[in-house]
Amino acid sequence: MKKNIFFGLIFILTFSMNAQNEELPYSQIPDYPEDYSPGNVAARMIDGLGFRYYWATEGLTQKDWEYKASKDGRTIIETMRHICGMSETIKNAPNAAPNTGIEGLADYSYEQLRKKTLENLKAASELMKGKKAEDFESFKVIFQRGEKQSIFPYWNMINGMLSDCIYHSGQITMLRRASGNPINPKVSVFNGRLRE
């Protein structure tokens, strides 16, 4: 009986550890595409964001999540929620899917926010790869509030959410350094890899 309980606990612990260690996208940037088509360039921008976000948020502690530079500033976890919401918009644009907000985003844990954001960015990148200039005409940033829709071209995504997420990933990097937990010094954003 004790032997069965022991092996059962080992199985549960092993399963739990494997689930926690599930590899998230963007620990390194994917290989670059063969050509500079508009879709590939946009996908590469999203991949660059994913890589920066991955390392900006890797290994944060509760002390880090709660840190903010001033009483009026956002905490790191609030910044992560903001980025997560924008990552949903980035993912929805190639399909011209309306953005209504993510239900319960304020209740997401650090791990859930990080995973959702990285998965959204990976999905968005995949949707962009290989797209031609004419494909971008159908990509739309759509905000839906009740029956009202506000529709914008993909141009607004580039100077809006994509740029904003890169900016906020940099803020997280700065805030975590200020809270005493700087990012891995081996991160090379130029090469999209950890230095040896």
Score class of each variant (00 low, 15 high):
residue 1 M to Q: 13
residue 4 N to A: 09
residue 4 N to K: 08
residue 4 N to T: 01
residue 5 I to F: 14
residue 6 F to V: 08
residue 9 L to Q: 02
residue 11 F to H: 01
residue 12 I to H: 07
residue 14 T to A: 08
residue 16 S to P: 00
residue 17 M to T: 13
residue 18 N to T: 11
residue 22 E to K: 12
residue 25 P to D: 10
residue 27 S to W: 06
residue 30 P to C: 01
residue 30 P to Q: 10
residue 31 D to R: 12
residue 32 Y to P: 00
residue 35 D to K: 14
residue 35 D to R: 11
residue 38 P to E: 13
residue 39 G to M: 05
residue 41 V to Y: 04
residue 43 A to C: 03
residue 46 I to K: 08
residue 46 I to S: 01
residue 47 D to L: 01
residue 48 G to T: 13
residue 49 L to M: 04
residue 50 G to I: 13
residue 50 G to S: 14
residue 52 R to Y: 01
residue 52 R to S: 10
residue 52 R to G: 00
residue 53 Y to H: 00
residue 54 Y to K: 12
residue 54 Y to T: 11
residue 55 W to R: 08
residue 55 W to H: 07
residue 56 A to V: 13
residue 61 T to A: 00
residue 64 D to V: 02
residue 64 D to E: 10
residue 65 W to N: 03
residue 65 W to E: 13
residue 66 E to I: 07
residue 67 Y to G: 01
residue 68 K to M: 02
residue 71 K to V: 04
residue 73 G to R: 11
residue 80 M to P: 01
residue 82 H to I: 03
residue 86 M to Y: 11
residue 87 S to D: 12
residue 88 E to V: 03
residue 88 E to S: 01
residue 88 E to A: 01
residue 89 T to R: 13
residue 89 T to H: 09
residue 90 I to A: 07
residue 90 I to V: 12
residue 90 I to W: 05
residue 92 N to F: 14
residue 93 A to Y: 11
residue 97 A to V: 15
residue 98 P to V: 04
residue 98 P to C: 02
residue 103 E to A: 12
residue 104 G to W: 11
residue 105 L to M: 14
residue 105 L to A: 03
residue 109 S to L: 09
residue 111 E to H: 12
residue 115 K to E: 15
residue 115 K to Q: 15
residue 117 T to H: 07
residue 118 L to A: 07
residue 119 E to G: 03
residue 119 E to I: 02
residue 120 N to H: 07
residue 129 K to G: 00
residue 129 K to D: 00
residue 131 K to C: 03
residue 131 K to T: 05
residue 133 A to S: 14
residue 133 A to I: 14
residue 134 E to S: 08
residue 134 E to K: 05
residue 134 E to D: 05
residue 134 E to Q: 13
residue 135 D to R: 09
residue 135 D to I: 10
residue 136 F to M: 10
residue 137 E to A: 15
residue 138 S to Q: 14
residue 139 F to P: 05
residue 142 I to P: 00
residue 143 F to L: 10
residue 144 Q to A: 07
residue 147 E to K: 15
residue 147 E to T: 15
residue 148 K to T: 12
residue 149 Q to P: 03
residue 150 S to C: 11
residue 151 I to F: 13
residue 153 P to E: 05
residue 154 Y to E: 08
residue 154 Y to N: 06
residue 155 W to K: 15
residue 156 N to Y: 14
residue 156 N to V: 15
residue 158 I to W: 01
residue 158 I to K: 11
residue 159 N to E: 04
residue 162 L to G: 08
residue 163 S to E: 05
residue 165 C to K: 11
residue 165 C to D: 15
residue 166 I to Q: 07
residue 167 Y to R: 13
residue 167 Y to P: 00
residue 168 H to Y: 08
residue 168 H to G: 11
residue 169 S to L: 13
residue 170 G to W: 10
residue 170 G to C: 12
residue 171 Q to A: 08
residue 172 I to V: 06
residue 173 T to C: 09
residue 175 L to I: 04
residue 175 L to Q: 11
residue 176 R to M: 06
residue 176 R to Q: 07
residue 176 R to D: 06
residue 178 A to K: 03
residue 181 N to K: 09
residue 181 N to C: 05
residue 183 I to V: 11
residue 184 N to S: 07
residue 185 P to H: 04
residue 188 S to F: 06
residue 190 F to E: 15
residue 190 F to G: 09
residue 191 N to S: 04
residue 192 G to N: 10
residue 192 G to M: 08
residue 194 L to P: 12
residue 194 L to I: 03
residue 196 E to N: 15
